[in-house]
Amino acid sequence: MTTEVSRKEEKVARVEDLPVYVPPADVYETPDHYAVLIDLPGVAESDLELSLEEGVLRISGVRREPHEAQGRLLVEEWEPCRYQRSFRLATDCDTGKIEATLRNGVLTVTIPKTETARPRKIPVKAE
């Protein structure tokens, strides 16, 4: 049991050695934007990275969070890890206006659609 805990602590020391998990996500579209919601429990804002490259939105977060009690592990259902997920954005995304918020362990990324892609009413003129 003690080797179990020390293995966990070692892993915290080197981020690149942490196991990689694919966090669950919700993705939806509305008439004027797309939204991506990802569960990232235990990830601090400073350990979260978002990047956009060649139309691919990449989200990676590190869950460090060592056990404060530093004792014997009785139940282990999660571990320090890296969360990674990427999404290819649709061509009608306005990539300059992407917004991201992290709250209570959930990342919400809002991607507005370009002006031309949004639905709009065309006024009809009477003659």
Partner: peptide, 13 residues
């Protein structure tokens, strides 16, 4: 859930 224990306390996460 993770549960760990030391001589002083039990921690549930």
């Amino acid at each position: 859930v993770d549960v760990s224990e030391t001589d002083q306390e039990i921690e549930v996460k």
